[in-house]
Design a binder for these strands. Structure first.
Lengths: 164, 164
DNA sequence: AAATACTTGACTATTTTACTAGGTAATAGG
DNA sequence: CCTATTACCTAGTAAAATAGTCAAGTATTT
């Protein structure tokens, strides 16, 4: 288990998607502005997320990304795993024979710990964060005041198009 | 919360200390050989661990490092925290005013998650790993067969000195 | 005095992270 | 059909963090 900025960016971006899921796709440009990360870097991350089946892209105007599954079925562990690909914990090159044929005990213990961590993070879903009391209102307030979020923007656009 | 090889090395090294705690100090040279990390790099990590009050060094012949506290009182979180110093999650430079005065909601959510992770890792102590059935025997067997561990070495030395 | 072990700081190599720039493909709206 | 908007893809590259080295110490114990 590894946990770097890459994982953090991905999780926060996914949270953004989850928060605005009902309002339609979120563009990477929006996330890029919010989180202060470059667009292309986000594209790299979302490429991984898409390949992992966690998000799906919607092309064209009004497009962006949405969750590929309900927020209640996407765990933090899945996200972390998608972008921070496997670390080879054992310097014995995976085959468990570091130091002359014996698997290093502490490596085994670390693997145990790593498993436990994943288990823990597998129990936490995006929905658990988004569905908390207070979050939806907060997010909407934020959207309004900053004026650059999908929810607000899409609504405005929809109104302009006479859809609402 | 960040989790890199630095943290992993430290945790596995601490596990080594915990396993051999009763047998006396463990030298960094031994750990270096076992884990395949350079001695000086370990010295850096142990400098942090010592400053965090997790280990204490014993100088002179037969010296090395031992746990500064009982294994049951050292949590994984403490170790990770000691070497992977604080990450500034918010790119708003800690003051919570990213993007024009409003704290980015997703950053807050990430902080929550991070806290939960630390809580989780604070609940796991070195002792929980070391005291598991099967571990002491395994470790001793390993020591014997590799023939370079403190437990074996110290015992041999003690015998040579007529102490046992 | 010698061996052993820890300390410190400066230095280098490697990897990861992050960004830049160039595109192509699909789609919605006019 | 045309244009703007977005996803998507590829390659290169700059910056930063990580990982590791080297060398010259200091402190203890035998």
């Amino acid at each position: 288990m590894k946990l770097s900025t890459k994982g953090r960016y991905s999780v926060t971006a996914m949270l953004d998607l989850a928060i605005h899921d009902k309002a339609g796709p979120v563009t990477l440009g929006d996330i890029s502005q919010c989180q202060g990360i470059s667009l292309s870097y986000l594209e790299q991350l979302f490429s991984s997320l898409r390949k992992a089946g966690l998000v799906k892209g919607v092309r064209g105007p009004g497009g962006g990304y949405r969750l590929a599954q309900p927020a209640s079925e996407i765990s933090i562990a899945q996200i972390v795993r998608a972008v921070d690909e496997k670390v080879d914990v054992t310097n014995c090159n995976g085959e468990g024979d570091c130091q002359g044929g014996e698997r290093c005990l502490t490596h085994e213990l670390w693997t145990d710990l790593s498993d436990r961590l994943y288990e823990f993070l597998d129990g936490i879903t995006l929905a658990q964060f988004v569905d908390r009391p207070g979050i939806p209102e907060l997010s909407m307030e934020r959207d309004k005041s900053i004026g650059r979020f999908m929810l607000a923007r899409k609504q405005a656009e929809a109104i302009n198009r006479g859809r609402v």
